[in-house]
């Protein structure tokens, strides 16, 4: 299979306006991925599948990843007016890098028996702009996996034929695989010697009232 740089060049030539970026991978596996922007993802995917040199007709794996907001504390020197005189004071500023949700597609080719080519799609943030184009019209195998990402991470795939929860039940709220998910502690329990389970259970069940002494 061609190198990732060659693939990127060919995609840019074939799909006008596509913004692609090659992401590094430091581990010994060396599997680098290609970051594609949302608007052109569907066209890029069609190109990858239909191009005779690549023929990536087998979408092996679709994964969702959650990258939460990063807060860095940076110490900088700021000129401030202190007691009437201008001085340089050290202040810590919080730099907030917004987080995003990501869908990673591992693509192989069954006809040419090569691969993997890894595509990444990122949302803008984790709260309201969580829409991504669905690649199910290109690779049918992504159908259930995109449903699972919707269920567990909350990415809404536009163009998916049947987007609803797949592993959790229909009335479930929230998205369990996110890093900031807090599980409810009033699930059904069985008393075991684990003390913390008993503590949580006591918080939810009515405690027996002490009997009043007869006068």
């Amino acid at each position: 299979m061609e190198t990732l740089e060659e693939i990127k060049a060919r995609i840019e030539a074939a799909v006008s306006g596509a913004q692609l970026e090659i992401l590094a991978n430091d581990s010994p596996s060396g599997q680098r991925s290609l970051l594609v922007d949302d608007n052109h993802a569907l066209t890029v995917a069609m190109f990858l599948r239909n191009d005779p040199g690549l023929q990536l007709d087998y979408c092996s794996n679709v994964t969702g990843v959650d990258w939460p907001d990063k807060v860095e504390k940076i110490k900088t020197k700021v000129k401030k007016v202190v007691d009437g005189a201008e001085q340089e004071v050290e202040e810590t500023i919080e730099k907030r890098t917004p987080g995003f949700l990501e869908a990673v597609y591992h693509l192989y080719s069954m006809s040419l028996k090569h691969g993997p080519a890894i595509l990444r799609l990122r949302t803008e943030n984790r709260t309201d702009k969580v829409h991504l184009p669905s690649l199910t019209p290109v690779w049918r195998g992504a159908e259930f996996q995109e449903r699972e990402i919707f269920d567990l991470y909350g990415i809404v795939f536009d163009g998916h034929p049947d987007l609803r929860r797949i592993l959790m039940w229909d009335g479930f709220k929230d998205h369990p695989m996110r890093k900031d998910y807090v599980e409810p502690d009033d699930y059904e329990y069985e008393p075991t010697p684990h003390a913390e389970v008993l503590e949580k259970a006591r918080a939810h069940l009515p405690q027996p009232q002490p009997k009043e002494a007869s006068a």
Partner: peptide
């Protein structure tokens, strides 16, 4: 503690392709 990075490994399990995708 493996170095930061990611890897996808797959084998021919009796049922099909079983793969694990790990980000460290």
């Amino acid at each position: 503690r493996p170095k930061a990075g990611e890897a996808y490994g797959r084998i021919e399990a009796p049922k099909g392709e079983l793969g694990f995708y790990l980000i460290s």
